[in-house]
Measured scan of single mutants.
Amino acid sequence: YETDHQDYCEVCQQGGEIILCDTCPRAYHMVCLDPDMEKAPEGKWSCPHCEKE
């Protein structure tokens, strides 16, 4: 199925295993987040940009 999420990391602009924000189209590698994540979040997750809003 098609999503509106970007298929690359917002921080480093590379693809790969990325996690998707449930609020906006941004996507991130877990290691590119500050602080980085050990494992993928369970349930709904909002990226740092959305958390600030």
Results as ranks from 00 to 15, higher is better:
residue 1 Y to K: 15
residue 1 Y to A: 15
residue 2 E to H: 15
residue 2 E to L: 15
residue 2 E to K: 13
residue 3 T to I: 13
residue 3 T to E: 13
residue 4 D to H: 15
residue 4 D to E: 13
residue 4 D to F: 10
residue 4 D to A: 09
residue 5 H to T: 15
residue 6 Q to P: 07
residue 7 D to I: 03
residue 8 Y to K: 11
residue 8 Y to L: 12
residue 9 C to V: 00
residue 9 C to I: 00
residue 10 E to G: 13
residue 11 V to D: 15
residue 12 C to P: 01
residue 12 C to N: 02
residue 15 G to Y: 02
residue 15 G to D: 14
residue 15 G to Q: 10
residue 15 G to F: 07
residue 16 G to K: 12
residue 16 G to I: 09
residue 16 G to F: 02
residue 16 G to P: 03
residue 16 G to A: 08
residue 17 E to M: 07
residue 17 E to H: 08
residue 17 E to S: 10
residue 17 E to Q: 08
residue 17 E to N: 14
residue 17 E to D: 08
residue 17 E to I: 06
residue 18 I to S: 09
residue 20 L to F: 09
residue 20 L to N: 09
residue 20 L to R: 13
residue 21 C to E: 00
residue 21 C to S: 00
residue 21 C to I: 01
residue 21 C to N: 00
residue 22 D to F: 08
residue 22 D to E: 11
residue 23 T to C: 05
residue 23 T to F: 09
residue 23 T to I: 05
residue 23 T to Y: 04
residue 24 C to W: 00
residue 25 P to S: 13
residue 26 R to A: 08
residue 26 R to T: 06
residue 27 A to I: 03
residue 27 A to D: 02
residue 27 A to E: 01
residue 28 Y to I: 04
residue 29 H to W: 00
residue 30 M to A: 10
residue 30 M to D: 05
residue 31 V to I: 05
residue 31 V to P: 11
residue 31 V to C: 14
residue 32 C to I: 00
residue 32 C to A: 01
residue 32 C to D: 02
residue 33 L to A: 14
residue 33 L to Y: 11
residue 33 L to D: 00
residue 34 D to Q: 05
residue 34 D to W: 11
residue 34 D to P: 07
residue 36 D to F: 04
residue 36 D to S: 15
residue 36 D to V: 10
residue 36 D to R: 10
residue 37 M to C: 15
residue 37 M to F: 15
residue 37 M to K: 05
residue 37 M to W: 13
residue 38 E to H: 09
residue 39 K to W: 07
residue 39 K to L: 08
residue 39 K to D: 12
residue 40 A to K: 10
residue 40 A to Y: 02
residue 41 P to T: 08
residue 41 P to I: 12
residue 42 E to D: 06
residue 42 E to W: 02
residue 43 G to M: 07
residue 44 K to Q: 15
residue 44 K to R: 12
residue 45 W to C: 09
residue 45 W to R: 07
residue 47 C to E: 04
residue 47 C to Y: 01
residue 48 P to L: 08
residue 48 P to T: 08
residue 48 P to I: 04
residue 50 C to Y: 01
residue 50 C to K: 04
residue 51 E to H: 03
residue 52 K to P: 09
residue 53 E to Q: 04
residue 53 E to F: 10
residue 53 E to V: 03
residue 53 E to H: 03
